[in-house]
């Protein structure tokens, strides 16, 4: 198996390792970098539990090789908050947008890119936006509400906190 040196900026920190060409990005994040907030649910791009943000796009990291992410900027759940909680994290807590918590990091990463592209989504746009991420516990209503809460807070930070 050929070895390759990868350098990946994860949550603002440079990580560099010699890895097998076939090492999946999700395993690199979880095992080489010990960031276990990114989860694995299906290994086949179906469930979205492994969603991270690569150069601004939500990516399912179980179907991307670590070498493909070399030189890129990766954001994981551990990096979303800038001190305290990100409004999306806050929304999930306030609106009961999680139960077992396993899909939650992937959902939050997906929601983050959704709101960056579309700061004021309709309910239907939110449902389609997270349709690549499966949740078995919540029935999705409260995840939608969590993202609506976050959108409102991001758009009108003062009004939401008042």
């Amino acid at each position: 198996m050929s070895q390759h040196n990868v350098s990946i900026n994860i949550n603002g920190t440079e990580h560099s390792h010699d890895v097998d060409a076939r090492l999946l990005l999700v395993h690199y994040i979880r095992e080489n970098c010990d960031l276990t907030g990114t989860h694995i649910g299906c290994d086949s791009t179906s469930c979205g539990a492994c969603t991270v943000i690569v150069d601004g796009r939500a990516i399912k990291s179980c179907t991307m090789f670590a070498v493909q992410a070399s030189g890129k900027e990766v954001e994981t759940i551990e990096g979303v908050a800038d001190g305290g909680l990100h409004p999306i994290q806050e929304g999930f807590w306030e609106m009961h947008g999680l139960q077992c918590g396993y899909c939650t990091p992937g959902m939050i990463m997906c929601a983050k890119t959704l709101l960056e592209k579309n700061p004021d989504p309709t309910e239907e746009e939110i449902r389609w936006g997270i349709s690549g991420n499966l949740c078995r516990c919540t029935g999705y209503n409260k995840i939608v509400e969590a993202i609506q809460y976050a959108a409102e807070k991001i758009n009108q930070p003062e009004a939401a906190s008042a």
Binding site: R30, E31, D34, L35, T36, G37, T38, H39, I40, T76, I77, E78, A81, L85, Q89, F92, W93, E94, H96, L98, G101, Y102, T104, P105, I108
Partner: peptide, 21 residues
């Protein structure tokens, strides 16, 4: 009441079995 267990989950700090090394 908001759930007490949520802060660790929303920050990616839950500990599931595959997280143990």
């Amino acid at each position: 009441m908001k759930r007490k267990e949520d802060p660790r989950f929303i920050q990616g700090k839950g500990r599931y079995v595959d997280d143990f090394k």
